[in-house]
Write a protein that binds this DNA or RNA. Sequence first.
DNA 1: GATGAAAACTTTATAAG
DNA 2: CTTATAAAGTTTTCATC
Lengths: 159, 159
Amino acid sequence: MARSKSAYEIDDIDRKILRLLREDAHLTTQEIADKVGLSQTPCWSRIKRLEDQGVIAGYVALLNPERIGKPMSVIIEINLDMHDDEKIENFSRHLAQLPEVTDAYLTTGEYDYVIMAAVEDTEDYEQFLRKRLLKFPGIRHAKSTFCLRRLKRDPSPSV
Amino acid sequence: MARSKSAYEIDDIDRKILRLLREDAHLTTQEIADKVGLSQTPCWSRIKRLEDQGVIAGYVALLNPERIGKPMSVIIEINLDMHDDEKIENFSRHLAQLPEVTDAYLTTGEYDYVIMAAVEDTEDYEQFLRKRLLKFPGIRHAKSTFCLRRLKRDPSPSV
DNA sequence: GATGAAAACTTTATAAG
DNA sequence: CTTATAAAGTTTTCATC
């Protein structure tokens, strides 16, 4: 039996569309259609389908960290004392809810968590670390690494 | 002398607007106006100003990493052999240009660089590491940390 | 800042080839 | 898939308070 195109398959034209929208969501469907070699109608249907299927999760404005008073990025590697499920889930929820935290991952290897925080300056960072992050019970160790320069930050992986 | 409002100052209403657009760029100016307590015209002027001043750097679609075949995230901490300016600049450019690399930072502390890569699977990661990242001359050490779960990833810091 | 209005443009939907 | 068309919605601009 020949394999028919599944509803969830992404073809080369879809990928081209995603590549464009990943960089600039303000392109019109007509502009995208021109760039990918389609007419407006099927191009619009494809974008709609990619949204409905959750391939496109949403659209956001990108803010300039310097201009909104959060020029400093810090990477924090964290170890917990205990590793029972409840502890992990609680701390994970705690992290996700802190506004300074922009990224948080549960990881393999030397540390349990790797997170990133955006703050105003070193003083702001100290406050965050002592009064908000380390207030959570059961943190064995936290290692901070300061970012000197951001070379790249893509909101989505390349397609 | 009383400090007048600078062209580059952001007030509370601006911040409210940014908070909304940071999460959903498909809100209409009318919806934003309603939520922040302005009418459409001044709300539109503010958004335009924030764009012109570079506070809003752009608008992008967020893609679901799982759905575009890049479900795996790896954090890589890197040390170079030498640390002369040219080496740093060259390697920085190299990193920024690799499509697998979503994030790259020059850092203080134990490592020179901390980067993040999005890949399909372990095999894809091995190819990236050996054939693309470590092909660059002068890498002393690279430590990979695999992400088990993504708890949070905000494209922009909180306002 | 608010309101109202108008023009230009975009999205969304439909029909026919 | 294409072209063509059209209604609805949105952005952008402008005049007036």
